[in-house]
Design a protein around this nucleic acid. Structure first.
Lengths: 291, 291
DNA sequence: GAGTGGTCTAGACCACTAT
DNA sequence: TAGTGGTCTAGACCACTCC
């Protein structure tokens, strides 16, 4: 098999963690100590631990040390049709988007101390190309921008950069609706009922900026989510770009499968196909690229 | 801001890539050359490039070099209700699970050369605890196991480890159904119609083993998917554990939002809550842990 | 002051491949 | 043979926190 030294150490620690020898919460030996134990340089021991960190098996804190993580700490996000808890899962269920202000409520229900931090003052800004396209409004039209960080027990969970058409939500800048869910207010004030959501997910490592804001280290993956919330009329009422700490989340989806015989009923998405086959090297950077 | 040297270099290259100065496919300068240009050690230059790799902006090949990647190469997986192509997206649409054998068909439709490689000979095995629980059968009952690697143009896309109840699919070991979709055959042979699917996703870095099989490097994230496919009777007919190269995928979901007023209609998943609040340090490792 | 992880240096050898 | 990324060494200094 010829594993490298770092991977040998990682494999040893990994199996110790997975078979329970090292229980969740246990503090690992410091890097310098591991390097002595295994007779390697500190950088090699370090890479071993970084590998485990990326796999979500350990969590590292400067000064404090490295600790065994556990999947039980992941926040379970449920989407789609009614979802049953996966057998054996001990993850934490979230009511995300079933109710507004769901992060606060979920965390409170779980006995944690949630915190929402506005990284910028909410303001009306002119819609960029991206935002205009997602909200189906002309470029330059005013939108309400919110940029916030959600944490629980002082542990950052995700960054949310969200945009709302100003004609619907602009007055919220001066109007305090208290605990009223945003979309409940929308329905009362404008008669628009929120009915469905489109999401796009990609997984990648965090950028430097995201690492600082989310307090994670260089090997920690994030899930980048692009979300459009639509009213029953089909009008987009929110577009959000979310960066979630991957190690803290678990996403559950349930969906129907189309009939095997009525293939391509929903179309073979010709627009996407055509563009995807063109080289298109000069494509503008979208939100997916702008980390 | 006080960025480290590695992050300074990464930031420079990142902006060059995102604003188009470095087009997709461009070969980056070798590590040794970059380290000279920026006046840092090779390890520092290397960490800069590894950061970009994790973000999905570049792809590295031993011997060949490092190349600018592009989001246009991601395979777009569409789930849920009818999905519209996201504005500006040039990702590739996949018919995943809308038809069986979808990977082959998708890739062929895109003009790529798909390949499915069986990493183990398919066989009947006794169901472990996990598999039995997911398939709703007693532990030890026979299941058909398949373990395969899907690639396109010799580029590995994902590992699929899948299990099927032997009473339904066992005869496939000796029966060649050719190109017939697996679930179409199921309906004809057993009258079971596949209707919906539950999926769980987590994102993490790949393990050594996964890195070797998927031919990705240490900083590359994967998306681990746990999928149960159910017949209209509610019986699970497939359980699969999928490891997808994160940089090659993009997941799209569309789902309905429940009425804001009928909160908790689907229950607040008490079972999950109760277990999740217990420390539970002695929980058995599940498939989510077994990388 | 001691100890933690974060960063960085200036080398080294390896496997592999294109020429 | 030259050049690539992959791995490793044996140090170093830093910022930060806990004692």
């Amino acid at each position: 098999m010829e594993l490298g030294k770092a991977e040998e150490i990682a494999a040893k620690l990994r199996s110790d963690i997975l078979n329970g020898m090292l229980a969740a919460g246990t503090k690992l030996a410091p890097e310098r100590e591991l390097s002595e134990q295994f007779g390697v340089s500190r950088m090699t021991a370090r890479r071993a631990i970084q590998a485990l960190e990326g796999e979500g098996l350990v969590v590292r804190y400067p000064v404090r040390g490295t600790f065994v993580a556990g999947i039980r700490e992941r926040l379970l996000v449920e989407r789609g049709r009614e979802v049953q808890s996966p057998p054996g899962s001990q993850a934490i269920a979230a009511a995300e988007l079933r109710q507004s202000g769901s992060f606060l409520k979920d965390m409170q229900r779980l006995g944690r101390k949630p915190r929402v931090q506005f990284l910028e003052q909410s303001a009306l800004v002119a819609a960029s190309d991206d935002i205009a396209a997602h909200l189906h409004i002309p470029k330059g039209r005013l939108v309400l921008k919110r940029y916030r960080l959600q944490s629980a027990d002082n542990l950052p969970y995700r960054l949310i950069e969200s945009y709302y058409p100003a004609d619907l939500f602009g007055e919220l800048l001066t109007l305090d609706i208290g605990d009223t869910p945003l979309f409940a207010w929308l329905q009362e004030r404008h008669g628009l009922k929120v009915t469905h959501t489109q999401e796009m997910l990609i997984a990648r490592l965090a950028t430097q900026n995201e690492r600082q804001l989310l307090q994670i280290s260089a090997n920690a993956p994030v899930v980048a989510i692009d979300r459009t919330v639509l009213a029953s009329t089909g009008r987009p009422v929110e577009w959000a770009h979310i960066i979630a700490v991957a190690a803290l989340y678990m996403f559950t989806y349930e969906y129907d499968i189309l009939d095997w015989n009525q293939e391509q009923k929903h179309g073979d998405t010709p627009a996407t196909d055509q563009t995807s086959n063109t080289p298109g090297n000069q494509r503008r950077a979208t939100y997916w690229d702008r980390h």
